Simulated scan of single mutants.
Amino acid sequence: MKKNWLSPLALIFALLLLLAACGGGDDGSDDGEAAGDPSTDPEMIQIATGGTSGTYYPLGGEMASIISDNTDVSADAISSNASAENVMSIENGDIDVAFVQTDVVAHAVEGINAFDEPVEHVYAMGSLYPETVQIVTTDGSGIESVEDLEGKAVSVGAPGSGTYINAEQILEVHGLTMDDINAQNLDFGESTGGIQDGNIDAAFITSGTPTGAVEGLSATVDVAIIPIAQDKIDEIVEAYPYYAPDTVEEGTYGLSEDVETVAVLAMLAVSDSLSEDLVYDMTKALYENAEGMAHEKASFITLDNALDGIGIDLHPGAEKYFNEEGIELEN
């Protein structure tokens, strides 16, 4: 009788296909790639914030205390050059958690603007509060509109920072570029100091209001916030959907009336090297204890706002917590 030599080969091939199919059906494989191993979680995490005169730094200090008191890790808030630097610090493994603007981290994931290539190790933990684009000057400056900035010495933040990108986009909508102003790359404290000393005429400051540096300036001079006209607000929001209309309210910095402008959102980003369990615990601790924080912006840190403006993937630990609370990220 003639032997059938193809049958054993066919059997082996079928077994290989079966094993491959079983391996590909692991529902937890995607989450495993986005979260670290609990055995490698650090005992101390660092939260990168921003300059000491902005909103990130003091708020980050309160968050570090909450994490230290309610999880198995200790946390410490450190100052930094804010959003763009913070994103790269997470990507490079230098930082565990960081404050970032929603627009900046979206650019980072896409690999556009200040980012030469997409980042791969940065995930969202949750939204925090609106970050208002404040174009700060003094009552006696003669600057009453964005168009009036042409030819003036204006602080626009560090190149690639969230503030810098906001300034660039707002100038663009008003028919201006960085070449049309005398752009100065100053942090918030240097910006308000420059306005007070008369070395610069105005400054873009993207931060939660009231911002400490601007409050300090208002104690020595009459502060003015340059408004953005409604048609330009509409144009900005249409061109860049991560912006939203916002108002610097009467009484802030001694203002005599509301000033219309735009805002992006502040959020927390986290490294994929941290485990699902740790990020779950940190997310839960922050959103369930935010009402006990003293900072004015803490009132915005609620589950209702937790996923606003987020355009990148959630860390599996944060996603687990929010899913338990009945809220999901809409992409």
Results as ranks from 00 to 15, higher is better:
Lys2Asp: 15
Lys3Pro: 12
Asn4His: 14
Asn4Lys: 14
Ser7Phe: 15
Pro8Cys: 13
Ala10Cys: 09
Leu17Phe: 14
Leu17Ile: 15
Cys22Lys: 13
Gly24Ala: 15
Gly24Ile: 06
Gly25Tyr: 09
Gly28Thr: 08
Asp30His: 09
Asp31Lys: 10
Glu33Ala: 15
Gly36Ser: 08
Gly36Lys: 02
Asp41Gln: 13
Pro42Leu: 07
Glu43Pro: 01
Met44Ile: 13
Ile45Gly: 02
Thr49His: 06
Thr49Lys: 08
Pro58Ile: 14
Pro58Cys: 04
Glu62Cys: 08
Ile67Thr: 08
Asn70Ser: 09
Asp72Trp: 08
Ala77His: 02
Ser80Glu: 11
Asn81His: 12
Asn81Arg: 14
Ala82Glu: 07
Ser83Gly: 04
Glu85Gln: 13
Met88Tyr: 06
Met88Gly: 13
Glu91Thr: 12
Gly93Ala: 10
Gly93Glu: 11
Gly93Trp: 06
Ile95Glu: 01
Asp103Phe: 13
Val105Leu: 06
Ala108Pro: 00
Val109Leu: 11
Ile112Ala: 10
Asn113Met: 12
Glu117Tyr: 09
Pro118Arg: 03
Val119Ala: 06
Glu120Asn: 15
His121Cys: 10
Tyr123Leu: 15
Tyr123Asn: 12
Gly126Lys: 06
Tyr129Leu: 06
Thr132Pro: 00
Thr137Phe: 00
Thr138Phe: 01
Thr138Pro: 07
Asp139Thr: 07
Ile143Trp: 02
Ile143Ala: 03
Asp148Gln: 06
Leu149Phe: 11
Leu149Thr: 01
Ala153Ile: 02
Ala153Leu: 04
Val154Ala: 02
Ser155Pro: 09
Ser155Met: 10
Val156Cys: 05
Ser161Val: 05
Gly162His: 01
Gly162Phe: 04
Tyr164Met: 10
Asn166Gln: 12
Gln169Asn: 14
Ile170Arg: 03
Val173Lys: 12
Val173Thr: 13
Val173Gly: 00
His174Trp: 14
Leu176Phe: 11
Asn185Ser: 07
Asn185Pro: 04
Leu186Ile: 10
Ser191Gly: 11
Ser191Tyr: 07
Thr192Lys: 03
Gly193Lys: 08
Gly212Pro: 03
Ala213Asn: 01
Thr220Ala: 10
Asp222His: 07
Ile233Lys: 00
Ile236Pro: 00
Ala239Tyr: 09
Tyr242His: 12
Ala244Leu: 13
Ala244Phe: 07
Val248Leu: 09
Glu250Met: 10
Gly254His: 01
Gly254Arg: 05
Asp258Leu: 05
Val259Thr: 03
Ala263Cys: 12
Met267Lys: 05
Val270His: 05
Ser271Phe: 03
Ser273Asp: 13
Asp281Tyr: 05
Ala290Pro: 02
Ala290Val: 14
Gly292Arg: 08
Lys297Met: 14
Ile310Gln: 03
Gly311Cys: 05
Ile312Pro: 00
His315Lys: 05
Lys320Gln: 13
Tyr321Gly: 04
Phe322Leu: 10
Glu324Pro: 06
Gly326Asn: 12
Gly326Arg: 10
Gly326Thr: 08
Ile327Gln: 04
